[in-house]
Design a protein around this nucleic acid. Structure first.
Lengths: 130, 130, 130, 130
DNA sequence: GTGGTCTAGACCACA
DNA sequence: GTGGTCTAGACCACG
């Protein structure tokens, strides 16, 4: 369900954050669901527990998951994006970078728009819809 | 014309690569135009010459600029994007990341699409069009 | 009357100690009053009986409540704060932490003082006064 | 300048965060000043570099300090507290806890208010004022 | 020389 | 059994 690329230059803990966010967004993990324990996941992915820990803490900081004392970690039931103009401006910048890159790879506007459309569709297939 | 954020977590040399690519894309620098010398630019941006050097090397590797020995560095006159399925897949992944992030910031598909549209427009205003 | 936040990072048993202290301070529970049994309270708050037990023990250690064997747990009738320079110095430290935090949240001295005043007022409304 | 209590139950990294915040608030370290490097401070305090690192990262997250790529860590020059109702409510709660504790230590309102006044005074002595 | 990441392994508090 | 903290030691990217 979750894949880590040990060879990638992006830190493992960030990959993991990313993957979990995606899994939740797609509805594979729903609000209230239990995530695997730190130890469990570390064994499964053959990475160090501390690394998993770091990812979980980052996700908790973002209010996407929450820890229930001694019971484990769960997908937040009440995640609410809050206005964050700074993050929004960062997002815009990241998007700009990607679009510039796309141009240099020879994609025209049409192809880019199509790729966006496709990805958005992919990401919004909820489990419940199946 | 070019701005570097010393506090950003993305390496300065990568920021610079990014900025130069954007400047070229927007037509501020056109094929055949001369880029500032490493020393010049390093002074102007108050960053280490080695850092500028590294950026120029990266851009040269990508065939976006070229160095004429003793004469300086110029925007390539013959840049041609080539099919690169690996880079394309990386791009797709980066785009996916941004879109996931957008969702968690509370943007719906409409707002995302609009943002893409806006950025694409911004990026394709060529100097020549003015 | 008593609220526990399972998601909070402060241990449940400490939250409970805190809450009971507050309830007594406000006079909702008066000296001599009976506290709910461990079992009762654990059911009511849907927490582990061991956790309630731990809280009661802590409160007993602080002489704030007392256990009459077989009869239940009662608010002490003879609580007397005793000079405890160590605890006082801990308190001072905790207060300092809060005040530093307040500054970093942008509160000026006036606002801080006002907040203290308000809270003190809130806390000293006794049931008997109603 | 900074003291860590290895025996304390509060994590070292949190103590360090706290201490640095206080040092900055008192003006011993001013905006733009360089903090000791991770390694340096870890040697000085005889704690693990990772622990210092964790503190620095937490402070950076709070925008109180910032990292200048390869040059070291500096006190932010443009810290601006931003409206954060959630943090404010946590602060209020913490303050309430302290005040309750104070009552149980036998302090009356007058003494509490006086202690607050004293601490506020202590904390707002800036280096520049000396 | 600076911080960022990761591993291995240990201990502890909490429920 | 769960996560939280800490240490020791290693490697790496960046400037």
């Amino acid at each position: 369900m979750i894949r880590i690329d040990q060879r990638s230059s992006t830190p493992i803990y960030q990959q993991l954050v990313q993957e979990i966010k995606e899994v939740i967004l797609r509805g594979v993990l729903q609000p209230g669901d239990k995530l695997p324990s730190v130890r469990e996941l570390s064994v499964q992915l053959t990475i160090n527990p501390n690394t998993v820990q770091k990812s979980y803490q980052e996700l908790e900081r973002q209010k996407i998951i929450e820890n229930l004392r001694g019971k484990g970690t769960y997908v937040s039931t009440h995640y609410k994006p809050r206005e964050d103009t700074e993050k929004l401006s960062v997002l815009r910048d990241d998007l700009r970078k990607v679009l510039i890159e796309a141009h240099y790879l020879g994609l025209d506007e049409e192809k880019i728009t199509e790729m966006v459309r496709q990805l958005l569709e992919e990401l919004t297939i909820r489990e419940g819809d199946r």
